[in-house]
Amino acid sequence: MNPSLEPRTIGSLEQMWRKSKALFSVWFAHMTVYRAEILIWMLSGVVPLIMMSVWIGKAAASGGEIEGFTPASFAAYFLAAWVSQQLTVAWVAWEMDFQIRQGELSSRLLRPLDPFWEHFFRHFSERFVRGPFILIIVIAGSLIVPGTRLTPDLWHVLLYLLVINLAFAMRFLIAYCIGVLCFWLENATAFDEFFYVLLTFLAGGFAPLEFYPPAARAIIEWTPFPYLVYYPARVLTGALTAPEILHVIGVQLLWIAVFFVLRAVLWKAGLKRYGAVGA
């Protein structure tokens, strides 16, 4: 059930393009129906913006700088962290959980396309509805704190686009693995909630990793969390050198490979257990 290598998924490039186009346009249409809900949902990810004001206050109180972070660089970091968090949101665990428990997965399994792709396009198209709102908040945030420059140049934006897409792929695959656990458990969303709490504290939305105790940071570096928010935010704000960025990309690809394989294994084993309840 490897989603990209499966013969059923890819007929020819043209068919692939047609499928992508159809899935994108239909889910984009669906997401625009829910644009107001998406905006409200975005507000639930407001932690980095709150932390931004906390840290700016602290910096101002201690003579304008902490660990090399000025109010403007805090603003840039937390805005970038917030954007990164917004662009890596994945709710596929909830969808999988619902589909498996309610038996809705059945109608998806009857189609000659791995449901993976439909979930992917739901998330992908949603980003285009979320995008304009993100832009407005970023511009507003940059104007509020004087001297804030989110990113030094276009190159960093381009590199960021790559890194943030890899971060999304990581988050999406992790959530997918959590959702697929519902083949074995009564409910998998509790795990996703737990993951979300870890994400909030360990991914960099609370504070840049520089402010964590060195021992804690050393452990966090071995988890996927900083590669979802912290490192992408550092890439966007221009804080990393080229070799450091390459290292980030390498680690991200490694995590993607791990969760990609894990998802495939879990999915294949899970389908055998699927009870198609109520459907």
Binding site: S25, V26, E104, S107, L110, R111, A279
Partner: peptide, 24 residues
Amino acid sequence: MGQKQQLLWDLPALDSFQVNRAIY
């Protein structure tokens, strides 16, 4: 399945048809 649906609830049926057309 008479008690289950595959059509997308919030969109016209034609949109679901377009998806099936591409997928199949």
